[in-house]
Write a protein that binds this DNA or RNA. Structure first.
Lengths: 236, 236
DNA sequence: CGGGTTCTTGACTAGTTTCAAGCAAAGTGG
DNA sequence: CCACTTTGCTTGAAACTAGTCAAGAACCCG
């Protein structure tokens, strides 16, 4: 299986539009030096928990996960989704404890680097450290975008933006087959991502379906008319 | 003046609870190698703009700034505030262009590193690169918190949380004098940070004043009763 | 002492949540 | 294989939070 042969860093540079430093040689050396562990996680498992110490820096090799924060009374904000090439747990590795939880949406394959070896990576493999920073910057950008949506956009704009984002991110990872994406989310996930109630999310999705911008039945998500969705995202 | 003597990295580790690697020696070497430029920016200036290329990685030495994103129709989301020791422009240095703008709230002193030398920093000064990553992780955490607030908390909870956060962050940088903080914000800034209208922000602040949790007249911000504010932040 | 910005307040409106109920699809066990 | 249960989706009505409009007061700066 492909999965058994890739290591932590193999997937990192995939999404970089332009590698500032070729790290091919370094990646080889890295693979020899670090015996990175592989983890398999069942769908539905919360494998990183708010308040626990963060022991590993993970790269997603396969599957979907989501990061979230919970309040005492049960309200939950989904902070973002992790797809292949995304990194998980950086914040937990650098601070004493994790400030968010992570749950697997599908069965998940991860590659993990122990936090104790993170410094080795920085001191011995600068171009990988650079890649890692690039991933952190991508995460920052995504959060900025999401905050803009939740803070300023109407329910319709917000929902359309999120669907556009998820589809585009899935495209980057070649997850679209015959125009269709296996989207492992429920409307409740969307609602908790958008900061809206489930009911209102449902009604907003209905409007998007009626505009014939997307079709979403079961897990099969299809982007019928990207421009239409873009218009909904922009105008409200 | 103090300002003339510090370099890019002098301020970075200040907020790190526990330095994983002492970088004192490296910092010295860095200061000799890099002639980091200093910038002085007048209050009110937007010195980084959404869509422009990001030429520098900055560290704030003195003053306040805020990052924001704008929509075409003028709506604005403030993404966060930068105080001394905060870093600005990482995302712009790594990607082709900036995805947010930054405006100075007060007169600002920055220390800038050209994007072209960022790789030098990674290859030659790993412990500084590590510090930089720590700062990025702190930024990620702050954004997570803010997204939780805007997505899930009520107006009152949200506002109280933000005031707590700003005060705590100012405390870290020793900006509190006799219990008072010079807070260079208007209610419009708060509103754009919280994703609320100006009017509603005003009415929410009134409730916080009435609970005798804070006093805020002009620029002088005083935290009268932290526990009371915490209760407002938790219960709504 | 103006003139502009910021703050404050009330009345009205709109968007969103909550509540409640029914339906559809998928999974489970006898 | 079919009742039974669970989970997720859909819809309408009522309640409420927050937004908009409008106008006046307070504050600050030149």
């Amino acid at each position: 299986m492909l999965v058994e042969k890739v290591s932590l860093c193999d997937l990192w540079p995939r999404s970089r539009e332009k590698a500032l430093n070729s790290s091919a040689e370094e990646r080889l050396r890295f693979a020899e030096t670090f015996k990175t562990e592989q983890f398999h996680i069942a769908a539905g498992t919360t494998f990183m928990q708010q308040g626990m110490p963060g022991e590993h820096l993970y790269t997603v090799l396969k599957g979907w996960a989501f990061r979230y924060k919970s309040l005492d009374d049960g309200r939950r904000q989904i902070l973002g989704y992790a797809l292949p090439s995304d990194m998980l747990g950086l914040q937990g590795c650098l601070m004493q404890e994790l400030h968010h939880s992570v749950e697997a949406l599908t069965d998940l394959t991860l590659c993990g680097l122990s936090r104790h070896r993170l410094w080795e990576l920085y001191s011995g493999f600068p171009s990988l450290a650079f890649d890692l920073t690039w991933l952190a910057a991508r995460e920052l950008k995504t959060l900025d975008d999401q905050l803009l949506s939740v803070g300023q956009r109407s329910a319709l704009e917000r929902t359309a933006c999120l669907l556009l984002h998820l589809f585009a991110r899935a495209e980057e990872e070649d997850l679209i087959e015959q125009g269709k994406l296996q989207l492992p989310l429920t409307q409740q996930h969307l609602a908790d991502t958008l900061g809206m109630s489930l009911v209102h999310t449902n009604k907003t999705l209905k409007r998007i379906y009626e505009a014939k911008a997307v079709r979403w039945r079961g897990r099969s998500f299809e982007l019928l008319d990207r421009d239409a969705l873009r218009r909904l995202a922009a105008d409200g």
